[in-house]
Write a protein that binds this DNA or RNA. Structure first.
Lengths: 351, 351
DNA sequence: CTGAAAGCGCTTACAG
DNA sequence: CTGAAAGCGCTTACAG
């Protein structure tokens, strides 16, 4: 038992069967389409292609990489793939990579600097052609080092230190939320702001706070708390908020998962989201719409961000200058911050 | 500007600087620890190691793979990484792989057979040493083919066709849910059963239905509907359930994300989860506990499943027989199916 | 204990 | 249009 693993077909095998030299076969099979010079005569090309097809030839990537010093591999670092935001961005990266004939290594760094370093070395040790970081810290020392070493890379999700980055216009997203809450008449608001080292949370908070300041309602410091980017973090941040003073009328949580924790904490304090207090999240993850009280949030083009990040990396690999891109967010209003929608919802449930 | 990418250090460079032959350096640096035979004299070993360290030598994996026909790479296929269940299993795989000196390619197949085929070929084209499938379909024709080709692989998450698989004891998990609902006095229940090609949903439903049958309460066919494994799927399945007859007193949704869709649909029909109808999910994903009405669910050891799956693959790669493993699930009762807990919750919120 | 050779599978100027 | 050679960086018996 146990099927023997067939030795893969090589160029040499094809050459032998056809009485050609391996270099001719190589030229035929892998001549760049743009290449003006013909690889061989039409009949030869035909024969080679046919046999390669028949035998199911697949180029040995290790041999090719060794010879060309190009691996067509890229490394992707994310804080954690179990965060649906990063997983979705990665799906975009992978999709676009496949279209460019590139394969991706993706790895979790849990936002721990030592792990970021170690995984970067590991990935570089694999001789990737370039990297995409989804876990940049605002203190960009590490990335500066990587850049100094000449490693081509781009950032997605979070920006840092002026390196080419494809991110959502988080500042604008924060302003949109502020605008919405101001329209709803909120005057005393709070923010669960995420990790202080992540541009996402910082920029969202910044836009939000700026807009309130412009409205003559600067947000006091104790109304802004940092937190981890998950349900636990949202819960913990909210508990601190509730302990630190009177109840605000609205809470902006800089990501949906945090918002879920916030909702849990508010519930534990006997507060009804949408009625007693407004809550707004960020990212419009799939469950925001499905929550018992649907969550107002800001939609960010996550998959598209991944696709564009990969495209920028391809440009960098081609020797061009990588460009930063700012993707447009969109406010999605739902019952968690809109009394009219909340009433309609309750009417249905109540009746 | 533009740091030049330094050419990586090779064995040859080290050998030259030390006046040694490259083969000696190779032996020193990469002799297996188990190897009884010494690679070189102590002083030589010392000098080589020191210089390698100093220069930051990293073995070129392409050269090594080409020479040894072993890539230390494994391919992982999942339906989608944006499903937190699969992302968490993958985290376990990656963790364990790193401990074994292996790197992983992971790729999304969206449960589409043509994509599964294409991605498998792509990954095999990268010359991985083995594969882990998290997206097996019960109709195991494709996997049988892969096995016949002699590709070493194991399954995680879903089992199929008797191939080595590390999965949760889904059947038992389903029985646990049934047991719990029977204790709560439910007699008329329904199931949102997931995709019919996935053993997870099928086994969970099977265990659940068997237990009810044993209790003398066989579940009529129209009370079991199939659905996609996400919030949208749960919502759609639940709508069909609600359209097909009188209201059941409890709904078992075979995964948490589906359950969220179910909760959304029930809400839209004016039903209060935990009061008017019980809902139970599966997997205990992080948000189950944070939902406004916390969700009863079955905890499955997702990360551990990934770790064990990788370990089984390592065994297979070592020429041993891969073994299937069944991991133990645990029922987590919360307010969505427990009137006592629900009352306590409401008392807090109401007050 | 250390060196020399062969070879993994490919690509790329260079001849002819 | 096609062949021959060199070489990417490594490992692995085999000599000595």
């Amino acid at each position: 038992m146990g099927a023997k693993k067939a030795r893969p077909v090589t160029l040499q095998m094809i050459a032998d069967q056809l009485g050609l030299h391996v270099s001719t076969v190589s030229r035929v099979l892998h001549a760049k389409p743009g290449e003006g010079l013909r690889a061989a005569s039409s009949p030869t090309v035909e024969r080679v292609r046919r046999l390669a097809d028949e035998l199911g030839y697949q180029r040995n990537p290790h041999a090719m990489s060794l010879r060309t010093q190009r691996s067509n591999l890229i490394g992707v670092l994310v804080p954690r793939l179990s965060d649906v935001v990063l997983a979705t961005i990665y799906e975009g990266i992978e999709e676009a990579a496949a279209e460019h004939g590139l394969s991706t290594f993706v790895t979790n760094t849990r936002d721990v600097p030592e792990v970021q370093r170690a995984r970067t070395e590991m990935v570089l040790g694999r001789r990737v052609d370039g990297m995409i970081f989804g876990d940049a810290h605002s203190d960009s020392g590490f990335l500066d080092e990587v850049a100094a070493r000449g490693v081509p890379f781009v950032l997605v999700n979070r920006r840092a230190g002026g390196h080419p980055a494809v991110v959502c216009d988080d500042y604008l997203g924060g302003r949109m939320v502020a605008e919405h809450l101001l329209e709803q008449g909120h005057r005393d608001v709070a923010v669960v702001a995420g990790e202080p080292y992540a541009s996402t949370g910082v920029d969202r908070t910044g836009g939000f706070a700026d807009r309130f300041r412009e409205a003559g309602l600067p947000i006091p410091e104790h109304r802004i708390v940092h937190s981890r980017f998950d349900a636990q973090g949202g819960r913990a941040g909210t508990e601190r908020l509730l302990a630190s003073g009177p109840l605000p009328s609205a809470v902006f949580v800089v990501n949906d998962f945090g918002a879920i924790g916030t909702i849990g904490a508010l519930r534990d304090h006997g507060l009804r989201v949408g009625a007693d207090i407004a809550v707004v999240g960020f990212n419009d993850t799939p469950l925001a719409a499905e929550l018992p009280v649907p969550l107002t949030t800001v939609r960010s083009p996550m998959r598209e961000m991944g696709r564009r990040g990969l495209r920028q990396l391809v440009r960098v690999l081609a020797g061009e200058q990588g460009e930063s891109e700012l993707l447009r967010p969109e406010l999605i209003v739902r019952a968690s911050s809109d009394p009219a929608r909340y009433e309609r919802l309750m009417a249905k449930v109540g009746g």
